[in-house]
């Protein structure tokens, strides 16, 4: 590999991971707020919806991983298709949150339940949207053949960004749907 690219790749990876670390403090702050305000309780939410959106996001992480693997294996068609599949699943996840969770019986102004529920899902949704935009950019550049199986930092960054968004949900899902006593 080209020496300059190697140096840049090393910097980029470290930089992106440091950014994840920083973002983790943001999401930890939100989680702490959740436990501070809700304590060991939670509002009654639609469990089926929670499982569904979690599954969709998990699947999208799989397709994202597959896209990256395909690129490394020089399989361009699978790479591009899996990116689009990821976008579709990400959008489905957003729809699940926005339509079913935000359209439910709790509004943002309803005490700490409303505030934290919308704060958590809102901040996460913001990251999902950024991930979708990122994937679309990478898809467009990939379509034009800007990435090779050796040099594709853009794809790698996009993929781990997307996985990071999934990672956050790994903690948010139990915090929202499972932990604590549901209050009717």
């Amino acid at each position: 590999m080209h020496g300059e690219y190697r140096v840049a790749l090393r910097n980029n990876r470290l930089g992106l991971w440091l950014f994840f670390l920083s973002e983790s403090f943001l999401f930890m702050g939100i989680l702490v707020s959740r436990f501070y305000l809700w304590g060991n309780t939670r509002p009654e939410l639609n469990q089926l919806n929670g499982l569904l959106v979690t599954t969709v996001l998990l699947l999208s992480s799989f397709t994202m991983n597959r896209a990256e693997t395909a690129l490394v294996q020089n399989d361009r068609k699978t790479f591009l298709n899996c990116l689009l599949l990821t976008v579709a699943l990400g959008t489905l996840f957003l729809a699940g949150v926005v339509v079913f969770e935000w359209g439910g019986h709790i509004r943002p102004s309803d005490g700490a339940y409303g505030a934290v529920l919308f704060g958590m899902t809102g901040m996460h949704a913001l990251h999902v949207v950024s991930g979708i935009v990122f994937i679309l950019i990478v898809w467009n550049n990939g379509r034009r053949g800007l990435y090779s199986s050796e040099q594709h930092w853009g794809v790698e960054a996009c993929a781990i960004w997307w996985h990071y968004v999934d990672l956050v949900w790994v903690f948010f899902y139990p915090a929202l749907y499972l932990m604590g006593q549901a209050v009717h």
Partner: peptide, 16 residues
């Protein structure tokens, strides 16, 4: 608000 009371929601806290 009334909806929050109906939900049995805990209140916010300035100390947070």
């Amino acid at each position: 608000n009334e909806a929050a009371i109906a939900l049995n929601s805990p209140p916010g806290d300035p100390v947070l």
